[in-house]
């Protein structure tokens, strides 16, 4: 088996008496889509914050391609090839969709301490940005102000911005958040395009999406990983059914 790209070892985060991430260990193999699921309060949001450099861990470490990235700040993580998307849409609302993605390209395309030539005419930034927009199906919406895009389109823009940084791994925080069935299905199609070419850690509530995309699934309950396995194994796992899927089923019924 290949060396894992991302390794989480004994990660802990406490908030007072609450242990949000409780000695969590898991790994992500290169090229796989690894989904993390778990009921509300399982610690998914805390984990994302820890992995993306926004929250300091109390113990444990995170390795990315063998390098210890536990305490790296957010911008440094992006520079070594770990890109993230946000659960609550995080875009530049006053800029056009193309401007949004061009900024993502710019972060990884040489110095930004350039003060004279017009960034909006720089093909080094605009061409890859257009390409990223096309890949998420927003090619025709490049010149629309991001704040005027529909919710679903803004979610697609999120993905385009993450892709445009040229990452080796994507950390996707609930890409289907707030989406209807049709929008969700479109997002699944978009993400499927990146399968194989990108390693993806997918945190997601939408079970249909998770089972459609994931190569492996880890189940988080109370900050602990109670099971990791292929979708079929997870579906069959009794403990998981009790902790999570059963609850979902009950909701659907």
């Amino acid at each position: 088996m290949a060396e894992p790209l991302l390794v989480i070892e004994g990660l802990i985060k406490r908030f007072g008496g609450l242990v949000a991430t409780d000695n969590l260990s898991l790994d992500v193999l290169p090229g796989e889509v690894h989904a993390i699921i778990g009921p509300n309060g399982a610690g998914k949001t805390t984990l994302i914050a820890q992995l993306s450099g926004e929250l300091k861990s109390d113990a444990g470490r995170v390795l990315f391609d063998g390098q210890d990235i536990t305490d790296l700040p957010a911008h440094a993580l992006s520079m070594i090839g770990l890109a993230r998307s946000f659960q609550v849409t995080s875009i530049f609302r006053d800029f056009t969709a193309l401007d949004n993605v061009a900024l993502a390209v710019q972060a990884h395309a040489g110095s930004s301490f350039r003060f004279w030539s017009a960034a909006r005419k720089d093909r080094v930034l605009r061409d890859p940005a257009r390409e990223a927009l096309a890949r998420v199906g927003l090619g025709a919406r490049a010149d629309v102000i991001a704040g005027d895009l529909s919710h679903g389109e803004q979610r697609q823009l999120e993905i385009a911005m993450a892709i445009a940084t040229g990452p080796r791994m994507l950390l996707l925080d609930e890409p289907m958040a707030g989406m209807g069935g049709e929008e969700s299905a479109r997002m699944v199609d978009i993400l499927r395009e990146f399968k194989g070419s990108h390693t993806i850690l997918l945190i997601e509530h939408d079970m249909d999406a998770v089972f459609a995309l994931a190569d492996r699934i880890s189940v988080l309950v109370y900050g602990r990983c109670i099971a990791t396995g292929k979708p079929d194994e997870i579906r069959a796992n009794e403990e998981v059914r009790q902790a999570y899927l059963g609850e979902e089923e009950a909701v659907h019924a």
């Binding site: 911008h75 530049f92 006053d94 972060a107 990884h108 930004s112 003060f115 030539s117 911005m161």
Partner: peptide, 22 residues
């Protein structure tokens, strides 16, 4: 309107996102 200008405008709009972009 330069690269630098786009960066400071981006920070004004959404600093957290700018950090996440690198």
């Amino acid at each position: 309107n330069s690269r630098f200008g786009m960066v400071i405008r981006g920070i004004n709009s959404n600093e957290r996102r700018m950090k996440a972009l690198g």
